[in-house]
Simulated scan of single mutants.
Amino acid sequence: MRQAHNAQARGPRLGRLGWSLISLLALVGLWELIALIAQSRYMPGPTEVVQVMIREAEAGELWGNIAATLIRVAFSFVVAMFIGSAIGLALGRYPMADRFFDTWLIFFLNLPALVIIVLCYIWFGLTEVAAITAVAVNKIPNVAVTMREGARSLSKDLNEMAHVYRFGWWKTLRHVTLPQLVPFFAAAARSGLALVWKIVLVVEAFGRSDGVGHQLNIAFQLFDVPMILSYALAFIIVVQIIEMAIIQPLIARATKWRR
């Protein structure tokens, strides 16, 4: 019975993988077709882009710039998740604080990322602190909104049960509160990673001397489209590997109790 169940579980998974590969190959084929029709240096084909990527990797430029960007992404992500989660939980648990700070939250949600980046560079100079602060400030409101909804949805019945059985604050936090917040934290983390790395590229293009964003800015000035696409594609692949190898397994482990 268990073998049959495992076989049924593997079937849809392999099916999704197969469809993903077919879809990806179709996209690459369409890209190649458009490049052949355009016959322009501003629309390179996938083969040319991959060749540029390999050349940059062999020279060491690709890995060095990706590493610099990933470090900024990691620091900004951790800061934004920690501060945003704390703010969101506080607003969700205390209605008066939520009513007072809701306008602040809406203000920062609608404040353009470019404005925050420019202001941070003006206030703190062209430094790593300014870059990380600009990215974190852009992401904190989004995390706060998601975690606020999570705090609002906490079960009062479960909290009362924990109180009746004298769980204590630590046991209640670990076994009652945090498991209920995991789906919201996971949603904030996954959307946060997608948003943070995009903002990091803008930050690097404006005021850093290394990183993927800096290289994209140089390639833009030279109208080097193959270079732009090669760095963009390489970084997308790296982010997807992080998503599948780290974030998804962690989320699956944290939500295992729900199955």
Rank of each mutant, 00 (worst) to 15 (best):
P226F: 04
A254F: 11
G213F: 15
F206P: 00
I242V: 13
A205R: 10
L216G: 06
I246R: 05
R208C: 02
A194G: 09
E243C: 01
E243A: 01
G211Y: 15
L250C: 00
T255P: 09
V238M: 06
E204F: 10
L201W: 13
R208I: 01
R253A: 12
V239I: 14
F220N: 13
I242K: 01
A219L: 09
A254M: 10
H214Q: 15
L201H: 07
L250K: 00
Q221F: 14
A232F: 15
A194P: 04
F220S: 11
A219D: 13
F220K: 13
F206A: 09
I218E: 15
P249K: 03
E204G: 05
A252F: 05
A234E: 14
I246Q: 06
F223R: 09
D210V: 03
A245T: 13
I228D: 09
Q240E: 06
I251A: 02
R208L: 10
L201M: 14
I247G: 06
L233Y: 09
V238H: 04
L222S: 10
P226M: 00
A245M: 10
A205H: 10
G213V: 14
D224L: 04
K198M: 05
G211H: 15
E204Y: 11
W197F: 08
S209C: 01
V212N: 13
L193F: 06
L193E: 05
V212S: 11
Q215F: 12
L250Y: 02
M244C: 07
K198S: 02
I242N: 02
A194I: 02
Q221M: 08
M227I: 03
Q215K: 12
F206L: 15
V225R: 00
R208G: 03
A219K: 08
E204I: 02
L229V: 01
I241E: 02
V239W: 02
D210S: 11
A252T: 06
I218A: 10
F223V: 10
W197N: 01
L193C: 03
L201P: 10
L195D: 04
D210P: 04
V239F: 03
F235V: 02
F206M: 14
I247Y: 10
G211E: 15
G213C: 13
P226W: 07
Q221D: 11
I236Y: 05
I251K: 09
V239N: 07
S191P: 04
V200D: 02
T255G: 05
G213D: 14
I199D: 07
M227G: 00
L250D: 00
M227P: 03
L250I: 00
D210R: 14
G211W: 15
R253W: 08
H214V: 10
L195W: 04
A245Q: 11
S230W: 08
G213P: 15
V238D: 02
E243Y: 06
V202W: 10
I242M: 07
A205L: 06
